[in-house]
Design a protein around this nucleic acid. Structure first.
Lengths: 207, 207, 207, 207
DNA sequence: AATGAATGAGGATTCATTCAT
DNA sequence: GATGAATGAATCCTCATTCAT
């Protein structure tokens, strides 16, 4: 899979689309300077177009952020739910696949993942609700797997209620420190965090 | 312990100091709107003083942020290291106390903790280095405990290297969602996260 | 007479012409928001066409205003001069008919009349001269009638010189407050203002 | 009476006040280019201060307009009501004094009078209500005098209802064409319009 | 310490207009 | 005729900061 842009697959590559260029530039700018620290001029410069032309594609800076976060959270939800759907019945297997999918997203779209967690606070109104809904749906997937596993005595943790949140925290925090050039491959990272997740639930694990 | 202000003990030092009022207002403003979203006018209004008077206490907005983050990270480091110093030799006990201290800080100074993780990116130069050093020192405490425990076969996790980061992630993420009015007391939260931390390391746990 | 559009007869010329749609939309926009407050986008939206297509019909926003004011003032001049031509010799009768024609125009084309008085200041150069000439010609008709009547001792006012301006002021001000749904019919309004005009000239009236 | 500024007496002269300079510049700018045609840069330049400093005195361009119109209408109301209060009981005398006061205001503050009638449409919300109230109060003074005179058979016009509006229209329209350098003195103009007003009501007048 | 006045740079957004298709 | 994309200049307004008092 090609990954020329920081949001390969998230933002349509095809075509020399100005719209895609703007979204990519906005993602880069928001990732680097934060939503309030980045200016529309930054975005325009990054997209190689004029400042005023941005407004032919997005009615406001907030709409830009909304579109970015919407895409990121939708893609994350899609990956996670697809992975779980294909994972069989065992809660441990399901959890493992969910974590791998989540970590995979964070590594594939690191900037998008970073912006999704750190800039969502600048989203308001309906835009926010839409994004929060997707985000919560993703976390709910983890919560349901855990509830299942606890009900079936596979996850003996005494604290199942905070576990989903912490698993998601760990996975999304990867966007904060991960360096693609480092020694940790995407697969190794995913495997490692899958194990962290199961350990958190105090599942008996073999070496 | 008194907790009049959101950062009682961190800032405040007793009385009606303008300086303390400014720091508290800045903390509240940065917490609510982010560093770039908050204006010096917001800070002045919150502190009940004039805009220009801010500059009698802090030479720039960045210095305000620096002071805030410095205090927060120093206090966190202090609490954690003190707790560990008093915790005996058992790595599990030491880790438990470290986590409890960390969680205690986050709950006592929720806004400061939140600002410390989300706004550190807007700190540059020496200010940043100073703060990053304190932050890393705090995480290093966890890293050392884990290394000790692994060496002594108390923590059988196959992935000791990422564990400290994840434990710290979980603890600091509390600042993101915790509601003081909720049903979770500080002590319960601390206990719960101490167990998560040990579970992450795959320590055998009873009950 | 048909009155589908706010300027039926003034603009419209029968059918679905884009040009007429643009003029009507411009009239509505300038009437509602003023020349400087209305944008070409407003006009395009009102006309149901694209922004750039406006420039296939009018070379600039100013040309749009010019065309509107030209038509309005030409029509007003036409109505007034025709009415006077058909009115016989008595200055009082002539004045009465002139006023009725003027008021009729204002009621039939209220928005056009309003724009004609309030936005003429934004017209410059030749456009302006052309329009001002028509406007002054209309007022001159009143002036001539008054001069005739004064010469023939029909209008004993000591202040004939300002009278024409004030009569025209009263008539055109109708565009400022008139509500077609109100209790005042066009004919009643015309009759009333004809009497005001004669009264202003201190003509003896029975009544 | 001194009349250095276009709003002498309206806008406080004393002091080299920046606030007064801004108001005067705004009045001049709005008078020349209209509210939407004038920019805050125009105002700043006219006031001899920086663009941003305007906002230390007025929170928005609309507030500037509101303040201007408020002052103008308040002053006009004040002048008119004071004149009427001192005018005795005869409705004709009262009307005469009211017209003279109104015309006096228009001549003394021509630009303010012009802006007051032509730019009030760009005022909205509470600002507008406040100003409209003052404007209507002024017109109501004329209405009451007319009602009194009609009741006492001093004003035999068959159309008393539209008379106040037309008298006010005539007086305020003076701001539209008057040239201080012309041959018409303020007093002559006032006298002339007082007579127009009485004539409109069909009062018997001696030569 | 504390203030109010002031400023230049820059913020997001809208403008009338043009151009390639 | 008609469109969508594009642009440079201008819009109102806010920013962090400074200065005289």
């Amino acid at each position: 899979m090609n990954s020329r842009s920081p949001v390969a697959g998230l933002i349509s590559e095809s075509s020399g689309g100005t719209r895609a260029a703007i979204l990519n530039a906005a993602l880069a700018a928001f990732g680097e300077k934060g939503f309030n620290g980045a200016s529309m001029r930054d975005v325009a410069a990054g997209a190689g177009t004029s400042l005023s032309n941005l407004y032919n594609y997005f009615p406001s800076k907030s709409h830009l952020l909304a579109e970015l976060l919407r895409r990121a959270n939708d893609e994350l939800l899609h990956r996670t739910s697809t992975a779980v759907r294909d994972a069989g019945d065992d809660p441990a297997d399901r959890l493992r696949e969910a974590v791998k999918a989540y970590v995979g997203f964070v590594v594939d779209h690191q900037t998008a993942a970073l912006v999704a967690i750190s800039e969502i606070r600048y989203l308001h109104g309906e835009h926010r609700e839409r994004v929060v809904r997707a985000r919560d749906s993703t976390q709910a997937i983890f919560g349901e797997i855990i509830a299942d596993g606890v009900a079936g005595n596979r996850f003996p943790t005494p604290y199942p209620d905070g576990a989903a949140r912490n698993i998601v925290s760990m996975c999304s925090a990867i966007s904060t420190w991960y360096h693609p050039e480092g020694q940790l491959s995407k697969e190794a990272l995913a495997e490692q965090h899958a194990r962290y997740a199961l350990a958190l639930l105090e599942t008996r694990l073999d070496g």
